[in-house]
């Protein structure tokens, strides 16, 4: 059972509010989740659903205009929220690896890839220059970059998009992290390159056994690699389930609609795509209704009055909705 293993990351009741000139924006609302060691958690949502902000909030990577509150954010049982800045720095550098969407903006264009790779190794693992270089070359060949030793002397612009993303992954994994946070790592890449990276991550996961949080808007990517999926909408988690269960038995009207709007490569070609009418909500105020109510096909009176809390559908599968998909009525 999942509950018997102590989670690697455990988040309880996270709220993030941005203070802007136009007023507060409640980007993350009461988000709770956990990641087990070695597990790959897929986080799915549209832009503005709060998926990236959630992860940034946890690691203290947001600008000072963001107010982050949480009951607890535990990493291996230690509360991150109580940590000093120095301790947090060590945690971010050594125990947690990050891969961001656009490798060109996350790599420094004026330093060689080798320098950027060895920097973390020397700072966080205290390796000598020589050891660090050897390890860096090893990491580059691990992520499938040919002629790794020579390429350490190259600058980021000398790599192609897919290769740069491999460099980012190598960098994130260099210190052997326990948790890897990958924020839309393949979104900027072509499908054939994306397929290469997904294969790579599947292989690395088996070799290194770290927990992974994979943020994406692509349900197809999630279907191929995740163990468990969390669907976010309007700054909250609307549904969470093991991957097979989620796709076979979606409960939230948003998840159901999302799966229906996607055209497929195989099977029937529908005359029209099912579309989700309307726009995602603007999170100006704390929500007092369900964020999806305005676009929901199953909307009821209660949805406009009360924001639903998460209820368990079956073990490991929960949904935040007043409507019961199995019975087709109010839950």
């Amino acid at each position: 059972m999942r509950d018997e293993i102590a989670p690697l990351l455990d988040v309880v009741d996270l709220h993030t509010v941005f203070q802007t000139r136009g007023g507060d924006v409640h980007a993350v609302n009461s988000v709770s989740f956990s990641v087990a060691p070695g597990e790959l958690l897929g986080v799915v949502g549209e832009s503005g659903s709060g998926k990236s902000v959630t992860m940034m909030s946890l690691m203290g990577l947001l600008p000072s205009s963001a107010r982050v509150e949480a009951q607890a954010v535990n990493f291996e049982g230690r509360n991150i929220r109580d940590m000093s800045d120095d301790a947090l720095r060590v945690l971010r550098g050594r125990d947690v690896g990050f891969v961001f969407q656009d490798p060109m903006t996350s790599l420094n264009p004026v330093f060689t890839v080798g320098y950027q790779l060895t920097e973390a190794l020397r700072t966080h693992l205290g390796k000598s220059k020589k050891e660090a270089r050897a390890r860096a070359a090893e990491m580059l060949s691990l992520v499938g970059i040919p002629d790794a030793k020579a390429r350490l002397n190259d600058y980021p612009h000398q790599f192609s998009g897919g290769m740069r993303q491999r460099v980012m992954i190598a960098m994130a994994l260099a210190c052997d992290p326990k948790l890897l946070i990958a924020d839309e790592p393949t979104t900027a890449l072509d499908v054939t390159i994306q397929a290469q990276i997904l294969e790579l991550v599947k292989g690395l996961r088996q070799k290194m056994g770290m927990g992974i949080v994979w943020i994406t808007h692509d349900l197809g990517v999630v279907a191929g690699i995740a163990d468990r999926v969390m669907v976010m909408y309007g700054g909250q988690i609307v549904e969470q389930a093991p991957v097979k269960e989620l796709f076979a038995n979606p409960q939230h009207p948003y998840t159901i609609a999302l799966l229906e709007t996607l055209p497929s490569l195989t099977g029937e070609r529908p005359e029209r795509l099912r579309s989700i009418d309307g726009q995602p909500p603007i999170l100006g105020a704390k929500l007092t209704s369900c964020p999806f109510a305005a676009r929901c096909r199953q909307v009821m009176d209660r949805c406009h009055r009360e924001n639903p809390t998460r209820r368990e559908v079956k073990a490991g599968h929960d949904v935040a909705c007043w409507w019961d998909a199995t019975q087709g009525g109010a839950a």
Binding site: T192, A195, Q196, E199, G220, A223, K244, F247
Partner: peptide, 26 residues
């Protein structure tokens, strides 16, 4: 063939069954 096989499908059962052609290089 390679391009089509690289497209991820939003269906975990389909995904685990698929025979992917992974193109090498850029």
């Amino acid at each position: 063939k390679a391009l089509l096989s690289a497209v991820p499908e939003p269906d975990p059962r389909e995904e685990s069954r698929r025979d992917r052609i992974i193109l090498q290089g850029d």
